[in-house]
């Protein structure tokens, strides 16, 4: 009889690791409603009218930053944005000082991307604001994993029981770890595929299958999530040449058409066309890359809205 009052189990969104399966379902159900809002003539709701959010990006970003900013604006939050490259960080200010100065301007939530793993967790222990991790080094990128799983759910109706192959630079990818945790919590089977040098040594302990043959991985999966080679995080050379990588692990139309079933192709962006995925695959009917971007706004609205409900 009483209305339901669901709530996230966590005050910050630092990683998928901290979320329960119920949390993820709640985020999805809320995102369904926000997706409906985004398809209306007036795409804005006043939910976060009195909340101020700082977007702090210590690393470059296009999609995530724009997507968060748009989500915040659609929720009527006040936003300030900050890019480390154009700030006093280059003058030697520490992370805590930078953030505390921003909080002194009465900011309620911080959306942060940082090149070091655990930066979000560190911040959440030292400053009085809610932290949303928008990517910390090669650790986690929770909203990306949520929108990926949400897109799979949208395409197939359910994530449970689906087979998802994550293909490419697993070692340097925060998308890979968050995706593995999120998909497993939702009951999907996960496989990682890439050259031995780009697969972390003990990844099997997470309960994922490991495959080094692209064709075998594609034949196994329902969904292939293609990752970019993160050259900016590679301090040494992990494979002889990009050309060789493309020949062994690049997804092209020929391979896709040779499979005995129709799989769905995903990519978190940015795409290096012609490296991990060719243009005709990225733009094909089997690709849901742009749906992922569209869903990203709804998912981020849901996350911010549900976290804001945690403040009271």
């Amino acid at each position: 009889m009483a209305d339901q009052h669901p709530k996230l189990s966590t005050k910050h969104l630092l990683g998928i690791k901290d979320l329960t399966t119920e949390d993820i379902q709640l985020i999805f159900e809320t995102a369904d409603n926000f997706k409906d809002v985004l398809n209306r003539p007036i795409k804005k709701v006043p939910s976060l009218r009195d909340i101020t959010i700082a977007n702090i990006f210590f690393e470059n970003s296009t999609r995530t930053k724009l997507s968060f900013e748009l989500a915040e604006k659609r929720l009527s939050a006040d936003t300030i944005s900050f890019a480390a490259s154009s700030s006093s960080v280059s003058k030697g200010e520490t992370l805590i000082d930078t953030v505390n100065n921003i909080l002194a301007m009465k900011v309620d939530m911080v959306v942060m991307r940082h090149p070091h793993a655990g930066a979000g967790l560190f911040l959440s222990k030292h400053v009085d604001a809610q932290i949303v991790n928008a990517g910390d080094g090669a650790h986690e990128h929770p909203t990306q994993a949520l929108l990926d799983a949400f897109s799979i759910r949208e395409k197939y109706g359910d994530v449970s029981g689906k087979k998802v192959a994550i293909i490419g630079d697993i070692l340097h990818s925060r998308v890979a770890l968050s995706n593995i945790l999120c998909l497993q919590k939702l009951g999907a089977e996960v496989m990682v595929c890439g050259p031995t040098t780009l697969i972390p040594k003990y990844i099997g302990t997470l309960g994922v299958k490991v495959e080094h043959d692209l064709l075998k991985a594609l034949n196994w999966c329902d969904v292939a999530n293609m990752l970019r080679i993160q050259l900016e995080r590679q301090d040494i050379r992990y494979f002889p040449s990009l050309r060789e990588y493309t020949m062994l692990y690049g997804l092209n139309k020929e391979i896709l058409d040779s499979l005995n079933k129709e799989i769905t192709v995903m990519h978190p962006g940015p795409i290096n066309r012609g490296v991990e995925i060719t243009s005709d695959v990225a733009d094909s009917k089997q690709s849901i890359i742009l749906d992922q971007v569209e869903n990203g706004v709804a998912i981020r609205m849901a996350v911010l809205y549900l976290l804001a409900g945690h403040r009271a």
Binding site: D3, Q4, H5, P6, K7, E29, T30, N33, F34, D36, V37, V45, P46, S47, L48, D50, I51, L75, Y305, L306, A308, G309, R311, A312
Partner: peptide, 22 residues
């Protein structure tokens, strides 16, 4: 019509209402 996202008590109400379909 679902009015959840238009409520004025998100900051004060300890229990967040569940949204339904519009």
């Amino acid at each position: 019509l679902d009015i959840t996202f238009f409520r004025d008590d998100i900051r004060t109400n300890k229990d967040l209402p569940q949204a339904s379909a519009t």
